[in-house]
Nucleic acid binder design. Structure first.
Length: 912
RNA sequence: GGGCUAUUAGCUCAGUUGGUUAGAGCGCUUCCUUGACAUGGAAGAGGUCAGUGGUUCGAAUCCACUAUAGCCCACCA
């Protein structure tokens, strides 16, 4: 093996190997399916940390299941992202000095497809850098032919079922994008604005005078004076006694002279502003509802691009909304209608795409009736058929589902699925294709001479989510009955961040249940968001974002994946900084170096010939049969136990989606158990051939445990060490599940032995600590004594074999280790361990005064503990209620600490 | 306004149904370049688990309130 691991070379070698050899691909049919659809990133997107987190989690789950023998599908793809993509292309056009209108719809769409062909593969390429084991042979696009057919079918069916309707509605409108926005697509931001107090004179009264506020006019407070020409009423709360006398009267709308009624409606908050609201049904969602209740006229005074139209009055017509605001305020002031202006902090909606201030606007839009769809989706989670992980997200899901509003699905864009509605005069024909629509039109009108040219298709396209909500089944071939659909639907897990539970997850639930009669997935795994080190959201504009590709370049894909898995909990958001990724990088190095060690040991054994390899001659691979009959040392049996434990733990942990715990478990197993523990042992192992063979076996287990987290380095090392032949892949090797009980019994792999070796190591640590405390130079060889049970004493452990004692002594850098019976009381510095009391003979110099001081401190600490432990054990309730093991442990601890005190007191005399 | 979550070592976070003297990584201190690894090894310091009260033999863990922070939804003309 090379001295250093070359991550880039491994990545460049293995990913194409996997992809070209179909390692990511299974055919439907045999085995138990495990399927996941990727949340499709925007085709315009570039890989960010959110993707890295989301896809690392999925890949870990998928690779793990695949190795466990599941028939696995992880389906990749991209989203056509209506507005985002159209914006990108429009920006490019702008550089040429053109608008999309200059090209016309057909040419513009051709241009977008051209763009997609050229740049749309960016993110898909970047995903490969992560090591995703997505089945690229099944890659889909929300706007490809199959998805488009699914969309048309769904629209038609919902329309026929009466679940899609076209309605006059007040929508959030982005004047720059020229499209309606869903509520969720509007971002509310704090705004320092003004409250304009305006007098509306009451008809039939004298002109208002200051100081007589309610006699002659009503005072309206508004933040949007430019909408005044669209007012069709003034409203007060019906319970508001101050204004009760005004209800039913008429006031004059300033600047227009129009007379509008004063109405009473619960919507009005008595406490807010003046308690009197101007009602502008065409320009405010609440006013719209009030208008509906009171049959008010809806006067739309603005154009699509937020300029005033002729209904705003000749003077304002053509003005931009902000310009008009100024003009109207000036005119109100000039006319004596403006009472005063107040500063106010409120929230103003902005377009999530272009950040333009959103306008509420009256328009005809298509809607999906959501209530009937939501009910089964609620039931599926309530019944437990579909599960949220972590479970608490179901509350948020219910909260939204139970208060669901109809979904505005039409968008005034060109890039997207065109609404399959065709107009012939006042008639609308909805059908999957234009031909079918024509047939319907012919049937309805009885006019056989109609042609496609007579029908006009709706110019709008559908919201992007209208294709993504079908993703789990449209990508498997629906509406065709395909083998994939039959086998892989419903998918198993859906992994996504919390921010698209409503946009996407909830809607997929509805679509899946409605069209497939089965929920689209069984488990919804929600993870947090990756945040910058200071806790803020990462964003390019803030310059606080980390680029996963840069991290891969610097630290390797495995390092990125492992680090992100290790630091991310499903429960909450993750703050990251660059240094975090050193963990993964260092771990990769550690794996490589440990592999080098194993290779060297094996080379050495081979070099020494069959004699050194003992009865394992020619057999470098550990297995129960060859080793059985040889005596395995305690340390050998310890690592086998640790390996068994790690395998069981990792499987159990991944079963529960605890990605982070799994990373920790396998990290600990590899680093602490294998490297710090067993590798150190192997260096001096009495029966090296056996121990190296065991190392080979547990190393192979560790590699496979690690593979879902670190695919590249594990594949590379597996080949370097000869676990796999050319053409094979670790991806398809069985994931370790631990040894059988029979194996463990045959090898003497027991919990007792595991604890025994842990104890032995604690003794080593204790002696090292003593050396450090007494400043014994590392080069010095010391005398160690351990007081522990001897053969004769009841229940005491048997003495150690001579060879083990040698190893122990070497680890302690002790020229000798003497054993004395437990309870021996030596006047030497000591530490208690489960193995026994470890004494260090201080034949050198020690600063007596400092030592006495230290001991005094220690004694004080122990006294505190002993006091509380005594109290605890004196408590009858504790003894009666606590589990036996807990009580026993408490007793043991107390005794141990009492011994410690006795020891220290003795020592204290020594130093006095 | 409605809902959700968090608060544990200097930092980032674990702590599974209440039960050892509360853990990890990074950072810090001291020591170590003896052949797997200095992207490393050994040892160590550092926490009254946000606060108050309650339930319990026993609370970081359960309950209530308070404080602070964050997120989501709905939003005031």
């Amino acid at each position: 093996m090379d001295k250093h691991y070359d991550a880039k070379a491994a990545e460049a070698k293995w990913y194409p190997f996997w992809e070209q050899n179909g390692c990511f691909h299974d055919e439907p049919g045999t085995g138990t399916p495990y399927s996941v659809v990727i949340p499709p990133p925007n085709v315009t997107g570039i890989l960010h940390m959110g993707h890295a987190l989301n896809q690392t989690i999925q890949d870990i789950l998928v690779r793990w299941r695949r190795m466990r023998g599941y028939n696995t599908l992880w389906l990749p793809g991209t989203d056509h992202a209506g507005i985002a993509t159209q914006n990108v292309v429009e920006k490019a056009l702008k550089k040429e000095g053109k608008r999309r209108q200059d090209l016309g719809r057909e040419a513009f769409l051709a241009r977008v497809w051209e763009w997609k062909k050229q740049y749309g593969g960016t993110i898909v390429h970047q995903q490969r850098m992560l090591g995703n084991s997505t089945d690229w042979r099944r890659e889909r696009f929300t706007f490809d032919e199959g998805c488009s057919r699914a969309v048309a079918k769904v629209f038609t069916q919902l329309y026929d079922e009466g679940l899609i309707y076209k309605g006059n509605y007040i929508v959030n409108w982005c004047p720059r994008c020229g499209t309606a926005l869903a509520n969720d697509e509007v971002e509310h931001e704090p705004n320092h604005g003004h409250f304009w107090y305006i007098r509306y004179p009451v008809v039939g009264s004298a002109k208002g005078v200051a100081g007589e506020p309610y006699a002659d006019y009503v005072m309206v407070a508004t933040t949007r004076p430019e909408t005044l020409p669209g007012d069709t009423a003034v409203a007060v709360n019906p319970k508001d006694e101050r204004y009760a006398h005004l209800v039913g009267k008429t006031v004059i709308l300033p600047l227009t002279g129009r007379e509008i009624p004063v109405i009473a409606d619960d919507y009005v908050d008595r406490e807010f502003g003046t308690g009197i609201v101007k009602i502008t049904p065409a320009h405010d969602p609440n006013d719209f509802l009030v208008g509906k209740r009171h049959n008010l006229a809806e006067i739309n005074i603005m154009t699509d691009d937020a300029h005033m139209n002729e209904l705003a009055g000749a003077k304002y017509c053509g003005m931009d909304r902000w310009e008009c605001r100024k003009a109207i305020v000036a005119d109100l002031e000039a006319g004596g209608f403006l009472d005063h202006i107040e500063d106010i902090d409120n929230q103003v909606g902005h377009c999530y795409r272009c950040h333009e201030t959103v306008e509420s606007r009256l328009s005809k839009q298509w809607f999906v009736r959501m209530k009937p769809l939501a009910e089964p989706a609620i039931a599926a989670v309530k019944s437990g058929e579909v599960r949220f992980v972590p479970e608490r997200w179901s509350k948020i899901y219910f909260n939204w589902m139970e208060n669901i509003q109809d979904w505005c699905i039409s968008r005034q864009l060109w890039w997207g699925h065109r609404i399959p509605a065709y107009y012939l005069g006042d008639d609308v024909f909805v059908a999957e294709t234009a031909e079918e629509a024509l047939a319907k039109a012919k049937a309805k009108t009885g006019n056989a001479a109609l042609t496609l040219a007579d029908l006009k298709q709706d110019p709008d396209v559908l919201d992007t989510w209208f294709s993504s909500w079908l993703w789990p089944f449209s990508t498997l071939g629906w509406p065709e009955k395909t083998a994939d659909l039959d086998y892989y639907y419903p998918t198993t897990d859906l992994v996504t961040a919390q921010d698209i539970i409503f946009f996407w997850v909830a809607r997929m639930m509805m679509a899946g249940l409605h069209f497939m009669k089965k929920p689209p997935f069984k488990n919804i795994v929600i993870h947090g968001i990756v945040r910058a080190a200071d806790g803020s959201k990462m964003s390019k504009s803030k310059g606080n974002s980390l680029d996963p590709l840069e991290l891969i370049d610097q630290y390797s894909a495995d390092a990125l994946r492992f680090s992100i898995a290790l630091i991310t909990s499903l429960e909450c958001d993750t703050k990251v900084n660059k240094e975090k990724f050193e963990i993964g990088r260092n771990f990769t190095t550690k794996i490589w170096n440990a592999a080098k060690f194993l290779e060297m040991q094996e080379e050495a054994l081979k070099g020494a010939g069959g004699a050194a390899a003992g009865s394992l001659a020619g057999q470098s691979r550990f297995d129960g049969r060859t080793v059985f009959g040889q005596s395995l040392s305690a340390d050998d049996r310890h690592i086998l136990y640790a390996a068994d434990l790690a395998c069981r733990k990792v499987n159990e942990i991944l079963e529960a989606y605890r990605i982070q715990d799994g990373a920790l478990a396998v990290y600990d197993f590899f680093w602490t158990q294998i490297c710090d523990g067993y590798v150190e042992y192997v260096k001096d192992a009495p029966n090296k051939a056996v121990s190296v063979a065991i190392l080979r076996d547990v190393f192979w287990k560790a590699l496979r445990l690690l593979h879902p987290y670190m695919p590249f380095v594990t594949e590379e090392v597996a080949h370097q060490l000869g676990y796999l032949k050319d053409g094979e892949t670790i991806m398809r090797q069985p994931f370790p599940v631990g040894y059988t009980d029979a194996e463990k019994a045959a090898w003497g792999v027991t919990a007792e032995n595991y604890e025994f070796v842990n104890a032995k190591r604690a003794a080593i640590t204790a002696l090292r600590a003593l050396r450090a405390e007494y400043k014994v130079p590392p080069s010095a060889w010391v005398k160690a004594t351990i007081a522990r049970g001897t053969d004769g004493s009841a229940g005491a452990p048997a003495p150690l074999p001579e060879e083990e004692v040698k190893v122990l002594a070497k680890a302690m850098r002790a020229e000798s280790v003497d054993f004395v019976p437990a309870g021996s009381d030596l006047a030497m510095p000591s530490k208690m361990t489960p193995f026994g009391t470890v004494y260090l003979s201080l034949e050198g110099l020690v600063d007596k005064a400092a030592e006495a001081k230290r001991i005094a401190g220690e004694l004080a600490k122990l006294a505190g503990f002993i006091k509380s432990a005594e109290a605890k054990l004196a408590n009858e309730n504790f003894v009666a209620h606590a589990p036996e093991a807990v009580v026993a442990e408490a007793r043991r601890k107390l005794a141990e600490n009492r011994d410690k005190v006795a020891q220290l007191e003795k020592l204290a005399k020594l130093f006095a």
